[in-house]
Write a protein that binds this DNA or RNA. Structure first.
Length: 473
DNA sequence: TGTCTATTGTT
DNA sequence: ACAATAGAC
């Protein structure tokens, strides 16, 4: 006698129908599938912008499921308790989900899996968030890669599985359990007036993600290799926002870019390499979970970073008022759009950790508050890369000069002009939007005088070099 | 995926 | 005077 009990499909960061192994497997059983999203403690802990963005993604995904003849059951509470309650209500016999690889999610999922199995239920996790499972990419010596280039060489010839099609049909239960309306959860509560400013820059949902990919491949990828480093140019795919919520799978992006590469598209390999940077970060985080919270190299634990995030210069950094054009433009771009150009992230991070000698975790925490494409692995790796405490073998004394970088990557000043209003006769509309996006209590006006630098670039650099030279001594 | 300086070569 | 380059940090 076959098992006809429903399957709970627990959605987390896989808000899509295409290339979704857990969804595909659930549908193939022929049993009723009950998609579930749980606002649990891991969601609760998210920063303002990513929590808001995830909430929008959940609402959109609920609509997509409804359009496919299914539903998204939304509940709030500890994941295991919610799942067990749903099992009791629906008679479900199994829970499927896509694996996540950050320490917080892994700890939760391990407990959920054990709890479900102890109750006699099937609990099965599936791939889908990454191109490759982290334990399947190993060096010749059997360890994991700690350097990007060999990692790239190891995976670039290894084609990921072909993306799965969306299921032809989604069979539901005879009776659906009740659902919260995720719009009532207030996931955007902490965004304040920034939400209205950032919203037009978003592309929420699977259809929007696929449109972005299509647009990028048809228009952007040829120039990507040349233009991607110039923050004023709209040269990037902007898919990070969708990848972070799983509205498109990395396998789908890889496959499409790989076809472009095979067709001889300039820029395609550079783009594939960026996708593999994401992969590399997740593999690193999987193998060294402490990367998200502690110096990857313990030898940095004694370094005199300031952890005090209330210092005036750190407040200036957060507010985009350091007096350094590239840094301020970067921070303001983040306030208005919810994202920041990759090069700008390096500059802003270098300035905070080196010129302001601030612990990378202070910056990481702020980025988690502000980025709609918040990704725990990419940020942990990136911040530690900049700080010098990470696995990257790059010289520890690397200190970006924001003015040199601006001359090099924004030679005509477009990026700075787009985001800085003070002192401009006719400020760019985007520069003015920043003043609408930030909290009123900051009391900022485009008519303010642009701030004097909180620290001279030469002085900050010298101070950082001195501290780095004394490291450990 | 850096910066700075000295050096060498070019205009 | 300036660009390209190598080496040190």
């Amino acid at each position: 006698m076959t098992d006809e009990r429903p399957i709970l499909l627990w959605l987390r960061r896989d808000l899509r129908l295409t290339d979704h192994p857990a969804l595909d497997a659930a549908c193939r059983t022929g049993r009723p599938v009950i998609p579930v999203f749980i606002h649990d403690e891991v969601v609760e802990r998210l920063g303002a912008a990513p929590k808001w963005r995830l909430g929008l993604g959940v609402e959109r995904f609920a609509q997509a499921l409804a359009g496919a003849g299914s539903r998204l059951i939304c509940r709030r509470g500890p994941a295991l308790a919610v799942l067990r309650a749903l099992v009791a209500e629906t008679g479900a016999g199994a829970v499927f989900w896509s694996r996540l690889y950050d320490p917080d999610s892994r700890a939760r999922d391990t407990g959920v899996k054990a709890g479900l199995r102890a109750a006699g239920l099937t609990a099965q996790s599936f791939p889908g968030h990454l191109l490759f499972e982290p334990w399947t990419v190993a060096t010749g010596a059997g360890g994991f890669y700690k350097v990007y280039s060999p990692f790239w060489r190891a995976v670039k010839q290894r084609d990921p599985p072909a993306p799965l099609p969306a299921p032809a049909a989604l069979a539901g239960p005879h009776v659906w359990p009740r659902s919260d309306d995720p719009a009532d959860w207030g996931m955007g509560a902490a965004m304040g007036r920034g939400a209205a400013i950032v919203a037009p820059h978003l592309a929420v949902g699977e259809a929007a993600a696929r449109a972005r990919l299509h647009d990028f491949l048809s228009e952007g990828i040829a120039g990507y290799g040349e233009a991607r480093d110039f923050p004023a140019r709209a040269a990037t795919s902007r898919l990070s926002e969708n990848l972070s919520c799983g509205e498109i799978s990395p396998g789908t992006v890889w496959r499409a870019a790989r076809h472009a590469f095979d067709a001889g598209a300039a820029g395609a390999e550079t783009f594939l390499k960026q996708l593999i940077w994401r992969e590399f970060a997740w593999h690193l985080l999987y193998h060294t979970p402490h990367m998200a919270t502690r110096n990857w190299r313990a030898g940095w634990d004694g370094f005199p970073w300031s952890q005090e995030d209330g210092r005036p210069e750190v407040i200036a950094w957060k507010q985009g008022r350091t007096g350094v054009a590239f840094v301020d433009a970067a921070m303001r771009q983040m306030y208005v759009t919810g994202t920041m150009h990759n090069r700008a992230r390096m500059i802003a991070a270098s300035y905070l950790t080196k010129h302001l000698l601030t612990d990378w975790r202070v910056g990481q925490a702020w980025f988690e508050q502000c980025l709609v494409d918040w990704d725990p692995a990419a940020n942990a790796m990136g911040w530690q890369w900049v700080a010098g405490s990470g696995p990257d073998a790059a010289p520890y004394f690397r200190i970006f000069n924001p003015d040199t970088q601006l001359r090099k990557f924004d030679p005509d000043g477009t990026y700075a002009d787009t985001w800085l209003a003070e002192g401009r006769r006719t400020p760019h509309p985007s520069a003015l939007r920043y003043f609408d996006a930030v909290p009123r209590r900051w009391a900022l006006s485009p008519h303010d005088i642009y701030p004097a630098p909180v620290v001279g670039l030469a002085e900050g650099r010298a101070r950082a070099l001195a501290a780095l030279a004394n490291r450990g001594g």
